[in-house]
Amino acid sequence: MVLVDVRRLDDCLDGARVYSCRFAEPVTERQVRELAAGEKLEYFADFPRPFFRIFCAAGEQVKGVVGDDDLVVVMPAGGPSPDTFFSAGRG
């Protein structure tokens, strides 16, 4: 997953930061499951466009729709930037 753009959307009351992250290609189910390896995945396969949420043990959250090229990413207060998160061999 090649990250091409990061846009900050919001700041949460607890200090978490919400970003829209755009990738070079639409996200596939395989990539979602690789990203979620070892983490908690909610995958709604029967939606017209499968929706997923990944809850990482370190507090990051990734949400989106398979086939879109942008995901919503929540980074916890004090946590890394999305660039760092996705460059750590994820997806």
Binding site: D10, V18, F44, F47, P48, R49, P50, F51, R53, K63, G64, V65, D68, V72
Partner: peptide, 13 residues
């Protein structure tokens, strides 16, 4: 609420 809105619109139209 944010996730719900996203799932409804982008995932289910």
């Amino acid at each position: 609420v944010r996730d719900a809105g996203m799932a409804l619109e982008r995932g289910q139209g």
